[in-house]
Design a protein around this nucleic acid. Structure first.
Lengths: 210, 210
DNA sequence: GTCTATAAATGGATAGAC
DNA sequence: GTCTATCCATTTATAGAC
Protein backbone atom coordinates (compact mmCIF):
# COMPACT_ATOMS: atom_id res chain seq x y z
CA UNK A 1 0.00 0.00 0.00
CA UNK A 2 1.20 3.48 -0.82
CA UNK A 3 0.33 5.38 2.33
CA UNK A 4 2.02 3.05 4.78
CA UNK A 5 4.75 5.48 5.74
CA UNK A 6 2.15 8.11 6.58
CA UNK A 7 0.04 5.60 8.48
CA UNK A 8 3.06 4.71 10.59
CA UNK A 9 3.74 8.36 11.30
CA UNK A 10 0.10 9.04 12.23
CA UNK A 11 -0.10 5.98 14.47
CA UNK A 12 3.22 6.75 16.14
CA UNK A 13 2.17 10.31 16.79
CA UNK A 14 -1.05 9.20 18.41
CA UNK A 15 0.71 6.73 20.70
CA UNK A 16 3.58 9.07 21.56
CA UNK A 17 1.13 11.81 22.51
CA UNK A 18 -1.10 9.63 24.62
CA UNK A 19 1.31 7.21 26.25
CA UNK A 20 4.67 8.99 26.11
CA UNK A 21 7.56 8.48 23.71
CA UNK A 22 9.54 6.41 26.11
CA UNK A 23 6.72 3.99 26.90
CA UNK A 24 5.93 3.33 23.24
CA UNK A 25 8.04 0.70 21.47
CA UNK A 26 8.24 -0.09 17.80
CA UNK A 27 6.25 -3.25 18.49
CA UNK A 28 3.48 -1.27 20.13
CA UNK A 29 3.27 0.90 17.06
CA UNK A 30 3.11 -2.10 14.76
CA UNK A 31 0.45 -3.71 16.95
CA UNK A 32 -1.59 -0.56 17.04
CA UNK A 33 -1.63 -0.52 13.24
CA UNK A 34 -2.25 -4.27 12.85
CA UNK A 35 1.06 -4.48 11.11
CA UNK A 36 4.09 -6.68 11.59
CA UNK A 37 7.29 -5.33 13.20
CA UNK A 38 9.14 -6.47 10.11
CA UNK A 39 6.99 -4.30 7.92
CA UNK A 40 7.47 -1.31 10.15
CA UNK A 41 11.23 -1.75 9.95
CA UNK A 42 10.96 -2.01 6.20
CA UNK A 43 9.71 1.59 6.19
CA UNK A 44 11.72 3.07 9.05
CA UNK A 45 15.16 1.92 10.12
CA UNK A 46 14.50 2.82 13.75
CA UNK A 47 12.27 4.64 16.18
CA UNK A 48 14.67 7.57 15.92
CA UNK A 49 13.89 7.86 12.22
CA UNK A 50 10.17 7.95 12.91
CA UNK A 51 10.71 10.84 15.29
CA UNK A 52 12.86 12.61 12.73
CA UNK A 53 10.09 12.36 10.16
CA UNK A 54 7.60 13.73 12.65
CA UNK A 55 9.95 16.63 13.24
CA UNK A 56 9.91 17.32 9.50
CA UNK A 57 6.17 17.84 9.78
CA UNK A 58 6.59 20.18 12.72
CA UNK A 59 9.25 22.12 10.88
CA UNK A 60 7.05 22.54 7.81
CA UNK A 61 4.06 23.47 9.97
CA UNK A 62 5.93 26.12 11.90
CA UNK A 63 7.38 27.80 8.83
CA UNK A 64 3.95 27.79 7.17
CA UNK A 65 2.25 29.35 10.19
CA UNK A 66 4.88 32.04 10.47
CA UNK A 67 4.64 33.37 6.97
CA UNK A 68 5.86 36.91 6.35
CA UNK A 69 3.29 39.29 7.80
CA UNK A 70 1.82 41.97 5.56
CA UNK A 71 2.20 45.53 6.81
CA UNK A 72 0.47 46.82 8.72
CA UNK A 73 -0.10 43.78 10.91
CA UNK A 74 -3.73 43.38 11.92
CA UNK A 75 -4.73 42.21 15.39
CA UNK A 76 -6.60 39.35 13.73
CA UNK A 77 -3.50 38.06 11.93
CA UNK A 78 -1.46 38.43 15.06
CA UNK A 79 -3.91 36.38 17.11
CA UNK A 80 -4.12 33.70 14.43
CA UNK A 81 -0.40 33.07 14.36
CA UNK A 82 -0.42 32.39 18.08
CA UNK A 83 -3.50 30.18 17.99
CA UNK A 84 -2.08 28.12 15.16
CA UNK A 85 1.30 27.93 16.83
CA UNK A 86 -0.21 26.63 20.02
CA UNK A 87 -2.31 24.19 18.07
CA UNK A 88 0.81 22.74 16.46
CA UNK A 89 2.43 22.33 19.85
CA UNK A 90 -0.68 20.51 21.04
CA UNK A 91 -0.84 18.16 18.06
CA UNK A 92 2.82 17.19 18.46
CA UNK A 93 2.97 17.59 22.21
CA UNK A 94 5.10 14.48 22.81
CA UNK A 95 7.90 16.24 20.97
CA UNK A 96 7.72 19.53 22.85
CA UNK A 97 7.35 17.80 26.19
CA UNK A 98 10.42 15.61 25.70
CA UNK A 99 12.71 17.79 23.71
CA UNK A 100 15.72 17.45 26.01
CA UNK A 101 15.75 13.65 25.84
CA UNK A 102 14.92 13.57 22.14
CA UNK A 103 17.50 16.13 21.08
CA UNK A 104 20.04 14.71 23.51
CA UNK A 105 20.06 11.42 21.65
CA UNK A 106 19.98 12.61 18.06
CA UNK A 107 22.58 15.21 17.17
CA UNK A 108 21.25 15.54 13.65
CA UNK A 109 17.76 16.40 14.86
CA UNK A 110 19.19 18.68 17.56
CA UNK A 111 21.01 20.80 15.03
CA UNK A 112 18.00 21.08 12.74
CA UNK A 113 15.94 22.05 15.76
CA UNK A 114 18.34 24.80 16.69
CA UNK A 115 18.04 26.16 13.15
CA UNK A 116 14.25 26.15 13.38
CA UNK A 117 14.40 27.84 16.77
CA UNK A 118 16.60 30.61 15.45
CA UNK A 119 14.21 31.04 12.57
CA UNK A 120 11.19 31.32 14.86
CA UNK A 121 12.94 33.75 17.19
CA UNK A 122 14.04 35.90 14.28
CA UNK A 123 10.51 35.92 12.92
CA UNK A 124 9.09 36.87 16.31
CA UNK A 125 11.67 39.56 16.95
CA UNK A 126 10.99 40.92 13.48
CA UNK A 127 7.26 40.92 14.08
CA UNK A 128 7.74 42.83 17.33
CA UNK A 129 9.88 45.36 15.48
CA UNK A 130 7.15 45.73 12.86
CA UNK A 131 4.52 46.33 15.51
CA UNK A 132 6.72 48.96 17.13
CA UNK A 133 7.32 50.63 13.77
CA UNK A 134 3.63 50.81 12.92
CA UNK A 135 2.91 52.33 16.32
CA UNK A 136 0.95 49.39 17.75
CA UNK A 137 3.56 48.77 20.39
CA UNK A 138 5.75 50.96 22.56
CA UNK A 139 9.50 50.68 21.95
CA UNK A 140 11.73 48.44 24.08
CA UNK A 141 15.49 48.17 24.43
CA UNK A 142 16.88 45.89 21.67
CA UNK A 143 18.09 43.30 24.21
CA UNK A 144 14.67 43.22 25.79
CA UNK A 145 12.99 42.65 22.41
CA UNK A 146 14.92 39.45 21.97
CA UNK A 147 14.27 38.43 25.58
CA UNK A 148 10.59 39.09 25.07
CA UNK A 149 10.56 36.96 21.92
CA UNK A 150 12.34 34.18 23.79
CA UNK A 151 9.85 34.37 26.63
CA UNK A 152 6.91 34.11 24.26
CA UNK A 153 8.61 31.15 22.61
CA UNK A 154 9.16 29.38 25.94
CA UNK A 155 5.57 29.92 27.06
CA UNK A 156 4.03 28.63 23.83
CA UNK A 157 6.43 25.70 23.73
CA UNK A 158 5.66 24.60 27.27
CA UNK A 159 2.07 25.59 27.75
CA UNK A 160 0.61 22.19 26.90
CA UNK A 161 3.13 20.40 29.11
CA UNK A 162 2.23 22.70 31.93
CA UNK A 163 -1.47 22.18 31.34
CA UNK A 164 -1.12 18.41 31.26
CA UNK A 165 1.31 17.96 34.13
CA UNK A 166 0.13 20.62 36.55
CA UNK A 167 -3.42 21.46 35.73
CA UNK A 168 -4.26 17.82 35.15
CA UNK A 169 -5.79 18.38 31.73
CA UNK A 170 -6.84 15.07 30.27
CA UNK A 171 -4.35 13.45 27.99
CA UNK A 172 -7.18 12.53 25.68
CA UNK A 173 -9.04 15.76 25.20
CA UNK A 174 -8.25 19.11 23.74
CA UNK A 175 -6.87 21.63 26.15
CA UNK A 176 -8.10 25.15 25.99
CA UNK A 177 -5.70 26.64 23.50
CA UNK A 178 -7.26 30.02 24.08
CA UNK A 179 -6.04 30.08 27.67
CA UNK A 180 -2.52 29.29 26.50
CA UNK A 181 -2.64 32.09 23.98
CA UNK A 182 -3.89 34.48 26.62
CA UNK A 183 -0.88 33.55 28.72
CA UNK A 184 1.62 34.22 25.99
CA UNK A 185 -0.21 37.34 24.94
CA UNK A 186 -0.06 38.68 28.48
CA UNK A 187 3.69 39.07 27.96
CA UNK A 188 3.09 41.54 25.17
CA UNK A 189 0.00 43.30 26.49
CA UNK A 190 1.89 45.88 28.58
CA UNK A 191 3.58 47.11 25.42
CA UNK A 192 0.55 47.15 23.11
CA UNK A 193 -1.35 50.30 22.29
CA UNK A 194 -4.65 50.11 24.22
CA UNK A 195 -6.76 49.85 21.08
CA UNK A 196 -4.54 47.23 19.47
CA UNK A 197 -4.52 45.25 22.73
CA UNK A 198 -8.30 45.31 22.87
CA UNK A 199 -8.68 44.13 19.29
CA UNK A 200 -6.17 41.30 19.82
CA UNK A 201 -8.12 40.13 22.83
CA UNK A 202 -11.34 40.19 20.85
CA UNK A 203 -9.74 38.30 17.97
CA UNK A 204 -8.58 35.56 20.33
CA UNK A 205 -12.11 35.19 21.63
CA UNK A 206 -13.80 34.77 18.31
CA UNK A 207 -11.23 32.72 16.36
CA UNK A 208 -11.43 28.93 16.29
CA UNK A 209 -8.62 26.69 15.24
CA UNK A 210 -7.78 23.01 14.66
CA UNK B 1 28.26 2.56 55.68
CA UNK B 2 25.71 5.07 56.89
CA UNK B 3 25.66 7.55 54.01
CA UNK B 4 25.02 5.04 51.26
CA UNK B 5 21.50 6.21 50.55
CA UNK B 6 22.73 9.76 50.11
CA UNK B 7 25.64 8.62 47.95
CA UNK B 8 23.19 6.82 45.68
CA UNK B 9 21.02 9.91 45.43
CA UNK B 10 24.00 12.16 44.68
CA UNK B 11 25.38 9.78 42.07
CA UNK B 12 22.00 9.28 40.43
CA UNK B 13 21.43 13.01 40.28
CA UNK B 14 24.78 13.56 38.61
CA UNK B 15 24.13 10.89 35.98
CA UNK B 16 20.54 11.90 35.36
CA UNK B 17 21.55 15.51 34.83
CA UNK B 18 24.43 14.76 32.51
CA UNK B 19 23.21 11.78 30.51
CA UNK B 20 19.42 11.94 30.80
CA UNK B 21 17.10 9.96 33.08
CA UNK B 22 16.11 7.57 30.37
CA UNK B 23 19.66 6.73 29.34
CA UNK B 24 20.77 5.98 32.89
CA UNK B 25 20.03 2.50 34.23
CA UNK B 26 20.27 1.23 37.77
CA UNK B 27 23.36 -0.70 36.71
CA UNK B 28 25.01 2.46 35.44
CA UNK B 29 24.39 4.11 38.76
CA UNK B 30 25.86 1.18 40.67
CA UNK B 31 28.88 1.11 38.35
CA UNK B 32 29.41 4.82 38.73
CA UNK B 33 29.55 4.40 42.50
CA UNK B 34 31.69 1.23 42.42
CA UNK B 35 28.81 -0.55 44.04
CA UNK B 36 26.95 -3.74 43.22
CA UNK B 37 23.45 -3.63 41.70
CA UNK B 38 22.33 -5.81 44.59
CA UNK B 39 23.46 -3.24 47.08
CA UNK B 40 21.72 -0.46 45.23
CA UNK B 41 18.48 -2.45 45.31
CA UNK B 42 18.95 -3.04 49.00
CA UNK B 43 18.61 0.71 49.51
CA UNK B 44 16.06 1.55 46.82
CA UNK B 45 13.39 -0.82 45.57
CA UNK B 46 13.47 0.69 42.09
CA UNK B 47 14.65 3.54 39.93
CA UNK B 48 11.28 5.17 40.50
CA UNK B 49 11.98 5.32 44.22
CA UNK B 50 15.29 7.02 43.63
CA UNK B 51 13.52 9.70 41.62
CA UNK B 52 10.91 10.08 44.33
CA UNK B 53 13.60 10.68 46.91
CA UNK B 54 15.21 13.28 44.68
CA UNK B 55 11.84 14.97 44.41
CA UNK B 56 11.70 15.15 48.21
CA UNK B 57 14.87 17.20 48.09
CA UNK B 58 13.41 19.51 45.46
CA UNK B 59 10.24 19.92 47.47
CA UNK B 60 12.14 20.83 50.63
CA UNK B 61 14.40 23.18 48.67
CA UNK B 62 11.53 25.03 47.05
CA UNK B 63 9.62 25.55 50.26
CA UNK B 64 12.77 26.78 51.99
CA UNK B 65 13.57 29.26 49.24
CA UNK B 66 10.04 30.61 49.23
CA UNK B 67 9.81 31.47 52.87
CA UNK B 68 7.22 34.07 53.89
CA UNK B 69 8.52 37.47 52.83
CA UNK B 70 8.80 40.23 55.43
CA UNK B 71 6.91 43.42 54.62
CA UNK B 72 7.88 45.55 52.92
CA UNK B 73 9.61 43.33 50.38
CA UNK B 74 13.04 44.63 49.45
CA UNK B 75 14.35 44.41 45.88
CA UNK B 76 17.27 42.43 47.23
CA UNK B 77 15.07 39.73 48.75
CA UNK B 78 12.97 39.60 45.65
CA UNK B 79 16.00 39.05 43.43
CA UNK B 80 17.40 36.40 45.75
CA UNK B 81 14.28 34.25 45.64
CA UNK B 82 14.48 34.12 41.87
CA UNK B 83 18.20 33.43 41.77
CA UNK B 84 17.86 30.61 44.26
CA UNK B 85 14.83 29.22 42.49
CA UNK B 86 16.64 29.10 39.21
CA UNK B 87 19.64 27.53 40.90
CA UNK B 88 17.46 24.72 42.23
CA UNK B 89 16.06 24.09 38.78
CA UNK B 90 19.61 23.91 37.45
CA UNK B 91 20.83 21.49 40.11
CA UNK B 92 17.90 19.13 39.49
CA UNK B 93 17.49 19.90 35.82
CA UNK B 94 16.84 16.29 34.78
CA UNK B 95 13.62 16.47 36.75
CA UNK B 96 12.34 19.72 35.32
CA UNK B 97 13.30 18.74 31.79
CA UNK B 98 11.44 15.42 31.92
CA UNK B 99 8.52 16.16 34.11
CA UNK B 100 5.87 14.90 31.73
CA UNK B 101 7.44 11.44 31.41
CA UNK B 102 8.34 11.25 35.08
CA UNK B 103 4.95 12.34 36.39
CA UNK B 104 3.18 10.31 33.74
CA UNK B 105 4.61 7.10 35.16
CA UNK B 106 4.29 7.76 38.88
CA UNK B 107 0.86 8.90 40.03
CA UNK B 108 2.03 9.31 43.60
CA UNK B 109 4.78 11.69 42.58
CA UNK B 110 2.46 13.47 40.16
CA UNK B 111 0.00 14.30 42.89
CA UNK B 112 2.68 15.55 45.26
CA UNK B 113 4.05 17.64 42.45
CA UNK B 114 0.69 19.24 41.80
CA UNK B 115 0.50 20.15 45.48
CA UNK B 116 3.93 21.76 45.36
CA UNK B 117 2.97 23.64 42.21
CA UNK B 118 -0.15 25.04 43.80
CA UNK B 119 1.93 26.06 46.78
CA UNK B 120 4.49 27.87 44.62
CA UNK B 121 1.81 29.62 42.56
CA UNK B 122 0.01 30.72 45.70
CA UNK B 123 3.23 32.05 47.13
CA UNK B 124 4.02 33.92 43.92
CA UNK B 125 0.53 35.34 43.56
CA UNK B 126 0.67 36.42 47.19
CA UNK B 127 4.04 38.05 46.70
CA UNK B 128 2.72 39.97 43.70
CA UNK B 129 -0.23 41.13 45.78
CA UNK B 130 2.15 42.28 48.51
CA UNK B 131 4.21 44.26 46.02
CA UNK B 132 1.07 45.90 44.70
CA UNK B 133 -0.06 46.73 48.22
CA UNK B 134 3.22 48.33 49.19
CA UNK B 135 3.13 50.42 46.02
CA UNK B 136 6.11 48.79 44.29
CA UNK B 137 3.92 47.46 41.52
CA UNK B 138 0.95 48.80 39.59
CA UNK B 139 -2.31 46.90 40.04
CA UNK B 140 -3.45 44.19 37.59
CA UNK B 141 -6.76 42.44 37.12
CA UNK B 142 -6.99 39.45 39.52
CA UNK B 143 -7.08 36.93 36.65
CA UNK B 144 -3.98 38.49 35.17
CA UNK B 145 -2.13 38.25 38.49
CA UNK B 146 -2.52 34.51 38.47
CA UNK B 147 -1.60 34.31 34.79
CA UNK B 148 1.47 36.38 35.48
CA UNK B 149 2.48 34.08 38.33
CA UNK B 150 1.99 31.07 36.08
CA UNK B 151 4.08 32.65 33.36
CA UNK B 152 6.91 33.36 35.75
CA UNK B 153 6.67 29.78 36.97
CA UNK B 154 6.82 28.38 33.44
CA UNK B 155 9.81 30.51 32.49
CA UNK B 156 11.84 29.60 35.58
CA UNK B 157 10.90 25.93 35.25
CA UNK B 158 11.95 25.72 31.62
CA UNK B 159 14.79 28.15 31.37
CA UNK B 160 17.57 25.61 31.81
CA UNK B 161 15.98 23.22 29.33
CA UNK B 162 15.75 26.04 26.86
CA UNK B 163 19.33 27.04 27.50
CA UNK B 164 20.61 23.49 27.08
CA UNK B 165 18.51 22.42 24.11
CA UNK B 166 18.37 25.60 22.07
CA UNK B 167 21.29 27.75 23.08
CA UNK B 168 23.59 24.77 23.21
CA UNK B 169 24.84 25.49 26.74
CA UNK B 170 27.21 22.76 27.80
CA UNK B 171 25.70 19.98 29.80
CA UNK B 172 28.72 20.07 32.05
CA UNK B 173 29.05 23.71 32.97
CA UNK B 174 26.99 26.21 34.85
CA UNK B 175 24.60 28.17 32.72
CA UNK B 176 24.24 31.82 33.35
CA UNK B 177 21.50 31.86 35.93
CA UNK B 178 21.48 35.61 35.81
CA UNK B 179 20.25 35.59 32.23
CA UNK B 180 17.43 33.27 33.19
CA UNK B 181 16.43 35.52 36.05
CA UNK B 182 16.49 38.53 33.76
CA UNK B 183 14.08 36.69 31.47
CA UNK B 184 11.61 35.90 34.19
CA UNK B 185 11.99 39.35 35.68
CA UNK B 186 11.21 40.93 32.33
CA UNK B 187 7.65 39.63 32.79
CA UNK B 188 7.25 41.76 35.90
CA UNK B 189 9.28 44.80 34.89
CA UNK B 190 6.42 46.59 33.08
CA UNK B 191 4.46 46.60 36.33
CA UNK B 192 7.26 47.61 38.69
CA UNK B 193 7.68 51.14 39.96
CA UNK B 194 10.70 52.59 38.11
CA UNK B 195 12.81 52.85 41.23
CA UNK B 196 11.95 49.35 42.45
CA UNK B 197 12.67 47.98 38.97
CA UNK B 198 16.06 49.64 38.93
CA UNK B 199 17.00 48.29 42.34
CA UNK B 200 15.91 44.77 41.41
CA UNK B 201 18.08 44.91 38.32
CA UNK B 202 21.03 46.07 40.40
CA UNK B 203 20.45 43.32 42.96
CA UNK B 204 20.47 40.66 40.25
CA UNK B 205 23.80 41.99 39.00
CA UNK B 206 25.58 41.90 42.32
CA UNK B 207 24.18 38.75 43.91
CA UNK B 208 25.94 35.42 43.52
CA UNK B 209 24.38 32.10 44.20
CA UNK B 210 25.18 28.36 44.28
C1' DG C 1 5.36 -4.69 0.67
C1' DT C 2 4.20 -7.61 4.08
C1' DC C 3 4.50 -11.56 7.05
C1' DT C 4 6.48 -15.05 10.73
C1' DA C 5 9.97 -16.26 13.58
C1' DT C 6 13.72 -15.36 16.13
C1' DA C 7 18.35 -13.61 17.22
C1' DA C 8 20.94 -10.41 20.13
C1' DA C 9 21.21 -7.20 23.60
C1' DT C 10 19.68 -4.72 27.46
C1' DG C 11 17.60 -3.50 31.69
C1' DG C 12 15.04 -4.28 36.02
C1' DA C 13 15.12 -6.94 39.72
C1' DT C 14 16.10 -10.95 43.06
C1' DA C 15 18.38 -15.02 45.61
C1' DG C 16 21.55 -16.33 48.53
C1' DA C 17 26.45 -16.21 50.23
C1' DC C 18 29.47 -13.47 53.05
C1' DG D 1 25.31 -3.81 54.21
C1' DT D 2 27.41 -5.56 50.46
C1' DC D 3 28.65 -8.81 46.86
C1' DT D 4 28.20 -12.37 42.92
C1' DA D 5 25.47 -14.60 39.93
C1' DT D 6 21.60 -14.90 37.39
C1' DC D 7 16.70 -14.92 35.96
C1' DC D 8 13.09 -12.93 33.44
C1' DA D 9 10.84 -9.61 30.59
C1' DT D 10 11.29 -6.35 27.20
C1' DT D 11 13.05 -4.22 23.02
C1' DT D 12 15.44 -3.55 18.95
C1' DA D 13 16.36 -5.34 14.84
C1' DT D 14 17.03 -8.89 11.12
C1' DA D 15 16.46 -13.21 8.09
C1' DG D 16 13.97 -15.33 4.97
C1' DA D 17 9.35 -16.98 3.16
C1' DC D 18 5.36 -15.31 0.56
Amino acid sequence: MAGTKERILDGSLELFNNRGVQAVTTNHIADHLNMSPGNLYYHFRSKEHIIRSLFERIDADARAVMAPLPTPVSPQQWAEVFLHGLDTVWRYRFFFANIVEIAGRDDMLASRLRALTRWILDWTTGAIDALIEQGSMTPLAPGDRRRLAENVFIIIWNWTSYAVAFRGESRLHEIDAREGVLHSMLLLMPYFEPEFAERVRAAIDRTTVG
